Every structure is written in structure tokens, then in C-alpha cells.
Simulated scan of single mutants.
Amino acid sequence: MLVETLQTNRLTVIEKDRKPSSRTSFAGILREVKDIGGNRPSKQAAAWIDDRITEMRQDLVPLDKPVTLDNGRVVRVIGRPVVGPGDALHAVHLWVGVGADTAPTDKPSAAIGFTWNSDRRLVDLTETAAGAFGRPEWATAGRGLTAPEALRFVRVSDGLSLIRTILTREPGKSWVGLATVFTPLGQSAAQLVVGSDESPDGRAVWRGVLHDVSATTTPPAQSLESSALAALRHVSQSHIVLLDIGKMRLIDWITDPIPQIQWKGMVDNRDTPHPDDVQRIFDTARQVFGGHTPRGEVKGIRLRRYGGGWTVVDASGGVLPTAGEGPLLALVQFDVTGMSNEPDPVPPTDNGHPGLE
């Protein structure tokens, strides 16, 4: 089984016998191991394993130990950590068998840990995780992945639900769903699990696990909402993107992206538009963010190109409907109108506009 450790003082099973599980009770799963001897021995085994996982959160040392229960049964426990950025324990591949000489018959499924920075709107990966996608430079570049980059390789059936969840900063939130993962070896089915926890600065830190379930599960179908957005790729001649209005960060390209643009977060934290255009954009965004208008338009925006120069675009967009206090998202359409070779006045060390939140 695979046990997630994304939130402090909570363990749940997210995979059993290579099948996805929606954060099932850890103790409840052990009760299904009938050879342990019933409810009370199962609780005793669960408490012992819970203590070992607490230790593993600190030392990340793999576990392979027998424990003798009060009923005389010997239970062998094998645990292999799934480690995320910053040497944090994100999950444990756990095998439990009755008898000191019992052993697993197959290898655990592939799983990677990652973090989502809800302020910077970036995904951080370990070198192991980046290598699984055939892109080890993602981990060594030290910049993290922008949301559009990550969502090119991991597509979930209800993308809008995931995006609205992880854009919040509230601890104790979670999201679980099936995903299609694209790697150099092809595509496969996986389950994506994310959870938010308290951080020292009082803001939520999002940790996640992506684990392969292709042995038992087919890649998910898209939701009606996501399918409708995806259809735009085939009928629009413009470039359309899902935008987080509060931070003015791109979240997911609905069509193919504008080529050769150095978007914020991909190389450095400079705003992508020319500084003379940034204020015009935020003046319009502020009207939308404040609820004064559901749509906006800004013409003649210069977007920084890789290697120098600017691509000039006209942009227009509208707010997506949302329930309650959810984050404001907009669909923005870019139409390329020209090019410019004006000098770039912004140094690479600039961190850009802080956003409206």
C-alpha cells in the first residue's frame, strides 16, 4: 500500500494492491489483514507503524522490522520513503505481512513527491521526480516549474477544480483525482494527491504525491468543463490561456502558447510585459479583481522574447464564474500584432509586480 504523509499528524492510504484509494483510514486497511488476528491486534500494529512513520519523517531511513503483537503474532513491516523537495517525507510505500520470514512478491509502484508554492505559483521537484519525466534540468535549474509547464505533463480530469483548490492558502485543504501522465515512455494513468499544511510563516504549504496506478486503472476522461475548454484549441486561431487574476500568473494554456515568450518564473521573476505596459495591465486587472467589470482589454502589450526583443499582442479576457470566495480565474485571448526590438530596461534580478492579492 502507499500511505501519504502530506499533512502533520495525519496518515491515509492512497493506494492498495496498486489500485487508487481516496485517502482511506490507515487503521481500517490493516483490519482487512485477517491473519493479524482481529480488531485489537490491528489497532496495535497500526499504532506501532504510526510511530515508525513519525520517526521516518525525521530521518527518512527505510524500515524493515518485525513486531510481536500481544496475541503472539509476528508482523513484518517494510517501509520505503517517498521524499519531496527539502527532504520532506511525502509518502511511504508500506508492506505488512504476518510472519517474520514473509516477503513482498512485487515491487512498489512508481511515486514522486513535489511541492506547490501558492505565492510564487510554482511547482518544485526533486531530481528523481524530474528525471521520471525525462527532464532532470527541472530540478537543477533551481527555479521550479510554472503551472502551464507542469500541466503539459500531468492532465487531470477536472483541472479547474484542482486549480481552484491549490490557489488557496488555507491549511487543511486537500484534493485527490486521477491524472494522465505524459513522459518520454508514453502516457499512463496516475493518481494525484495534494494537501495543505501549516508553515512557519503562517501560510499554507502544499505538498503532493503523484503515483502510478496504470496496472489497474485507465487514464481518466475529461470533465465536461475541461472538454469544452480543450475544444477551443481546434477552433481558435488565437492563443488562449487560463489566468490567475490575483497574481497575474498563467495557469494553463487552452491552445498552443505564443512561441518564444519568456514567461515570468521560467527563467527569472521579471514581469513578462514591458514595464511601460505592466501598469496598464494591472489597472485593467484591478477593475476586474474588484468586481467592477467582468472583462477587460489591453492593446499593444510587449511580451519579452527569449534572446531579446518583444512580441506585441492585443489581449482581452473575461472572468470565469466561481462559487463563494474562490480565486478569480480568467480566460485571456492573445492576438499577435507585431514585433519590437526596443531595449529591455529591466535587470534579471527584478522580481516584478507583487500582484493584487
Rank of each mutant, 00 (worst) to 15 (best):
G79T: 02
T140R: 09
P184F: 07
L178T: 12
D244I: 12
Q279K: 10
D119R: 13
E149A: 01
G352C: 10
P327R: 03
S214I: 06
I163E: 00
L63G: 08
S161A: 15
S188K: 11
I166C: 02
A330N: 01
A100P: 06
S236R: 14
S316F: 10
S25N: 09
I258R: 06
K16A: 11
T5Y: 05
G308P: 00
R57L: 11
R57D: 01
G134E: 13
D51H: 09
T140H: 08
V346N: 03
Y306D: 08
G300Y: 00
I36C: 09
A215W: 15
F133V: 05
D314E: 09
T68I: 13
T349H: 14
D344K: 08
S42L: 06
H90S: 03
W253N: 13
L303S: 00
T255V: 06
T12G: 03
I245K: 03
P348Q: 14
A190N: 15
E325M: 14
G131D: 09
A189N: 05
V3H: 01
H353S: 11
I112L: 15
T216I: 04
G84Q: 05
A315I: 10
A139I: 11
E342D: 11
H90A: 05
T12C: 11
K299H: 11
F334G: 00
V67A: 15
V75N: 11
Q287I: 05
G308A: 04
V205F: 09
A100K: 08
S25T: 15
G195D: 04
E137Y: 14
Q262F: 08
G97W: 07
V176S: 15
F282Y: 06
A285W: 05
G84I: 01
L89W: 00
D35K: 05
K247F: 10
I245C: 08
P184N: 14
P148D: 09
A27K: 01
I301P: 02
L178S: 11
P219M: 04
P257H: 04
G97Y: 08
P275S: 12
T180G: 02
T255H: 13
V176K: 12
R164F: 06
A139R: 01
R302T: 15
L11C: 09
K16G: 13
R73Q: 13
P148Q: 08
R249M: 05
V312Y: 01
V123D: 00
A190Q: 14
R143V: 03
V313T: 10
V346Q: 00
G99L: 14
R120E: 06
V313K: 04
I166S: 01
